[in-house]
Design a protein around this nucleic acid. Structure first.
Length: 475
DNA sequence: ATGTAC
């Protein structure tokens, strides 16, 4: 974008003053290169979001931002509880897509003699790929129980440990979920998908801790150099997708009746206090629970797999955090505490130290913020900062962000070659889709290290540990 | 992201 339109408001922080139809400013986070590379569609989408009714405080744009459906991916927008809107496009199609990371109690050397065996066992055990069903069949009341109970329901069915729940955003359950607001079609699509990875950039990785940036916080999160960890990145599968598909046109059609002049039809939103807004809020909550339950079932499968191959392993959850949600949170605006609906689309909640929602063990150090890299590149564990509450509604980036479309990546790279090259780097890839590997080639993504650097310089999170992949299971 | 088109 044209950097001359922006005022530098701090390190890696740039303000676009409200103009035209915008109701609030927008703040872009990133170094000069990141800002210059932002395309016009993304900037237009940021303006569109800033033009919506009841938008409170600046629209925030993360260093990994790119254009999305209506809202930009990497966008954070807060809406006033009384006058604001909730947007299906502001949450996205993959409701509550997110990442969780577990420690294993193992060191990198423990895998030297059994890495291929572990990769094959995980690939056999973890359902992955488009349309691939999961481990659980949700008939009778089980679907609605899962949609109400999230990861807590899964743990109640003996697929997980009670202590897992304190390490999940919202204690593993969205309390506002309303399964009755989810269509029969959405539920039908999910009936055999719980406990499956899906495709695209979703993955399960066994990684090791390559570098520690903050010893005290790393100790608090339970990680040291050379520790083996497991990360799971996936979402709400067909259910979340269908919820978005169901509600987007309803919101577009209803907008004129609410007196909302949509800047783009893709942005689709409804007043928070309208029946449609409330219905979406309940359906989205059910979608959140579905994603939390999905990651919990997958965790159970991973634990079973390790128990077979490396029985000395003990898989403990560090944290599970989503990056496609809308959540009701309290923030200080102009000296007053306000309840806001925070949309984070491709942005991660990053609560600073002392926040009351954090488990006691994280109160001093801040929330673990798990940032998944692309296949074959680094992932990061960050910690939330105090500053982010005022700067970005306690949010930061979510990943690397693509530099080219999937179609272009398929033309540029050959899956087999990518797999071979990663193999030379000591990374074992297992996937049912050779085209999928080409689409996810590391060169199709931005440099994650640069994004983390900007995130840190902007003070919206602090780096704690860098993870390198050893094995990767992809859809 | 997605029963990669209804």
């Amino acid at each position: 974008m044209n950097i001359n339109l922006l005022n530098k408001s701090g390190p890696c922080r740039w303000t676009l003053k409200k103009n035209g139809s915008m109701n609030v400013d927008a703040v872009f986070f990133g170094d000069v290169n990141i800002i210059l590379q932002l395309d016009e569609t993304t900037v237009r989408q940021v303006r569109d979001v800033a033009s919506l009714p009841g938008v409170a405080g600046p629209v925030c744009v993360m260093p990994d931002a790119h254009s999305g459906y209506g809202f930009p991916i990497g966008g954070v927008a807060a809406f006033d509880v009384d006058h604001g809107v909730i947007s299906a496009g502001g949450v996205g199609f993959d409701i509550s897509c997110g990442v969780r990371t577990l420690t294993t109690g193992l060191k990198r050397q423990d895998l030297f003699s059994c890495d291929v065996k572990l990769a094959d066992a995980l690939f056999k055990k973890i359902p992955a790929g488009t349309g691939v069903g999961g481990a659980i069949h949700l008939d009778g009341n089980l679907m609605d129980e899962m949609l109400s109970g999230g990861a807590a329901w899964v743990v109640g069915r003996k697929m997980g440990r009670p202590e897992d729940l304190g390490r999940i955003e919202g204690n593993g359950r969205n309390e506002f979920a309303a399964p009755s607001k989810v269509s029969a079609k959405a539920k039908q699509r999910m009936i055999n998908q719980l406990g499956s990875l899906g495709s695209g950039n979703h993955y399960l990785e066994v990684q090791y801790v390559e570098k520690i940036f903050d010893n005290e916080k790393a100790a608090g999160f339970g990680v040291e150099v050379d520790d083996v960890v497991v990360s799971i990145h996936c979402g709400s599968r067909g259910l979340g997708h269908q919820i978005a598909k169901d509600y987007l046109p309803l919101m577009v059609d209803a907008a004129p009746g609410f007196g909302i002049n949509l800047p783009s039809k893709d942005i689709a939103c409804a007043p928070i206090n309208s029946q449609l807004g409330k219905d979406y809020w309940g359906a989205m909550g059910a979608g959140i629970n579905c994603a939390l339950a999905n990651r919990q079932v997958l965790t159970h499968l991973v634990r079973e797999c390790f128990a077979e191959i490396l029985p000395q392993a003990d898989l403990k959850l560090i944290y599970d955090v989503s990056h496609n949600t809308c959540q009701k949170e309290k923030f200080n605006i102009n000296g007053r505490t306000k309840t806001l609906y925070i949309h984070r689309k491709g942005a991660t909640r990053a609560l600073g130290p002392g926040h009351k929602e954090l488990p006691d063990e994280f109160k001093k150090i801040g929330q673990p913020v798990i940032i998944g890299g692309s296949m074959g590149t680094s992932s990061y564990i960050l910690a939330g900062t105090d500053e982010s509450a005022d700067l970005s509604f306690s949010s930061c980036c979510h990943g690397a962000g693509r530099t080219m479309s999937r179609i272009k990546a398929r033309k540029c790279f050959k899956g087999k070659k990518v797999q071979k090259e990663l193999g030379r780097q000591g990374i074992i890839i297992r996937s049912g889709s050779i085209n999928g590997i080409a689409e996810e080639a590391p060169s199709a993504y931005k440099d994650i290290n640069g994004i983390i650097k900007s995130t840190e310089q902007a003070e919206i999170s602090k780096a704690v540990a860098r993870l390198r992949p050893l094995l990767c299971i992809k859809g």
